[in-house]
Simulated assay, not measured.
Amino acid sequence: MRYDFTAHDYYAICPQINLMEPTHNPRYAALGVPQCPQCSGAEPAPTGEYIDAWRMRHRLFLNQARYVLAPSKDAALRMHEYFPDAPVRYVTHHDIPDAALLPVPRASRWRPMPICASLSSAA
Score class of each variant (00 low, 15 high):
68 V>H: 09
87 P>K: 15
76 A>E: 11
78 R>S: 07
80 H>N: 13
52 D>W: 13
47 T>N: 04
42 A>Y: 13
107 A>H: 11
40 S>T: 08
67 Y>A: 10
62 L>E: 04
60 L>H: 11
54 W>S: 06
58 H>R: 08
103 P>K: 09
75 A>E: 05
98 D>Q: 10
38 Q>T: 14
35 Q>M: 12
109 R>Y: 08
42 A>L: 15
63 N>C: 06
71 P>A: 05
116 C>Y: 04
45 A>Q: 05
51 I>S: 08
74 D>P: 01
94 H>F: 06
52 D>E: 11
96 I>C: 04
76 A>C: 01
76 A>P: 05
105 P>C: 01
92 T>G: 05
64 Q>G: 12
35 Q>V: 14
40 S>C: 10
99 A>E: 07
62 L>N: 05
102 L>V: 01
95 D>C: 03
93 H>V: 02
103 P>C: 01
46 P>T: 01
70 A>E: 05
108 S>C: 03
49 E>S: 07
61 F>K: 15
58 H>F: 15
86 A>S: 11
82 Y>W: 09
82 Y>N: 03
102 L>T: 11
108 S>A: 13
72 S>Q: 01
99 A>T: 03
114 P>A: 15
48 G>L: 09
101 L>S: 13
105 P>G: 08
91 V>Y: 08
82 Y>K: 02
114 P>W: 14
46 P>Q: 02
75 A>R: 04
113 M>G: 07
44 P>H: 04
49 E>F: 07
82 Y>P: 02
80 H>E: 11
63 N>E: 14
66 R>M: 06
76 A>F: 05
100 A>P: 03
41 G>Y: 11
43 E>P: 00
79 M>T: 01
115 I>E: 12
103 P>W: 03
38 Q>P: 00
49 E>L: 12
109 R>A: 10
75 A>F: 02
93 H>T: 08
111 R>T: 11
60 L>P: 00
94 H>E: 09
48 G>F: 10
51 I>C: 09
90 Y>N: 06
84 P>K: 06
109 R>G: 14
79 M>L: 15
90 Y>P: 00
112 P>Y: 06
58 H>Y: 12
43 E>T: 09
71 P>R: 02
108 S>V: 01
45 A>M: 06
42 A>R: 15
81 E>I: 02
98 D>L: 09
111 R>E: 14
69 L>T: 08
91 V>D: 07
63 N>P: 03
41 G>S: 08
51 I>R: 09
98 D>P: 00
78 R>N: 12
44 P>Y: 05
102 L>R: 09
35 Q>T: 14
90 Y>G: 01
